[in-house]
């Protein structure tokens, strides 16, 4: 499964589990407007670590993603 598909899957699953309404997902979507709060995003990052074996946000020079596109790019870059 591609990184992007896995990320989208986790956004959808966590939104469902946490009873949040997810905004339509696009690269331009601002994460804080996605319908997921910090706790939800934290769970997404933990689940992605379990699925993909990486947590790109723990690195000291990690950037803070603003949009979903930024978020996906951070994971894609970490995989390279």
């Amino acid at each position: 499964m591609s990184v992007k598909v896995e990320i989208v899957t986790q956004f959808e699953e966590v939104a469902k589990q946490q009873e949040k309404t997810l905004a339509p997902l696009s690269d331009e979507l601002v994460l804080l407007d996605s319908g997921l709060d910090s706790l939800c995003l934290a769970i997404v990052v933990a689940r992605l670590e379990d699925k993909l074996g990486i947590d790109p946000f723990t690195a000291d020079d990690a950037e803070f993603p603003v949009t979903l596109g930024d978020f996906i790019r951070v994971y894609e870059d970490a995989r390279r």
Partner: peptide
């Protein structure tokens, strides 16, 4: 606890 880069811990 599980460390987390967004909320510190889960």
């Amino acid at each position: 606890t599980r460390k987390n880069p967004i909320t510190g811990a889960l």
